[in-house]
Design a protein around this nucleic acid. Structure first.
Lengths: 141, 141
DNA sequence: TATCTGTGCTACTAGTTATGGTACAAGTAG
DNA sequence: CTACTTGTACCATAACTAGTAGCACAGATA
């Protein structure tokens, strides 16, 4: 899987790394059990520090998306096709979603336009993940 | 409008303030031309610093949602029912949406469940804003 | 067993950001 | 002009981001 990070972004490097991995898992590019590159290797690839990569991995581990065995490296832990979610985590996610959508609403984007954006984003994931999706048969509209 | 911020959140105080105001604008609780509380008043109410409130206002001003006249206070600038959006800003928003949705997908939430969350969030805005909504009449499931 | 190699982890440092405290500038009302 | 209300600017402290170096653990190998 190819990952790119933006050194001049206002988003922290470790956060960007975490985001790209999450997107990789969502799209199925990274499946459960698949190993992630060692921190040193990714650090060299991005020209950043191993500790920064490690911090990104920390986030993923805290989210239950990564398992690390000290000497064996890190592997993707959760599979998009099963897995629950802690109630607190889901509530937090929902709140963040509401805030993000509020931003678009406040800027004048109509509700159906917003939902269309959401559907498009979801399709970019399910496109590469043919199994177990529930929206291949167009819902609504 | 009643605003609440969480002093122990990992989200910066000024960011929380900005988020709450954006949600207020989206829901119509704050309409164009309506004045926002002075920085000192909000600072006293939250027990935080006037400069922190000012920084939150700075963000809103940068997003075109707020207008401030040095001695007359700040008023809501944009109305949810008109207004365009800079292309860059929309692309950035879309990218953030994709990342947020990826998080839910990676955690195993089905696509229709995600869209349902989005619809629910949008309804919490349009509920108090009877004009210009396009999803109040239940679609799908 | 002893050593080498590859892995993540921890401690320390420098720069940036977030927050608080206080003082200043600019209009408006009296 | 004086007093008051508004946002703003400046400075100090705490927290966070990113970098550097070294350590700890497990397996391979001789």
């Amino acid at each position: 899987m190819q990952i790119a990070i933006d050194p001049v972004s206002n988003v922290p490097l470790y956060q960007q790394l975490r985001d790209r991995v999450v997107e990789g898992i969502a799209s199925g590019e990274l499946s459960a059990g698949e190993p992630l590159a060692p921190v040193r290797q990714l650090a060299a690839q991005f020209g950043i520090n191993p500790a920064t990569v490690a911090k990104g991995y920390d986030l993923l581990r805290a989210e239950g998306l990564l398992l690390t065995h000290r000497t064996a490296g890190s592997v993707v832990a959760r599979d998009p096709r099963n897995a629950p979610w802690h109630a607190d985590a889901e509530a937090d996610w929902s709140a963040r979603l509401r805030t993000l959508l509020a931003e678009a609403v406040a800027q004048g984007m109509p509700d159906d336009g917003i939902l269309q954006h959401a559907r498009s984003a979801l399709q970019t994931f399910s496109a590469a993940r043919p199994t177990s999706d529930s929206t291949t048969k167009e819902d609504s509209r």
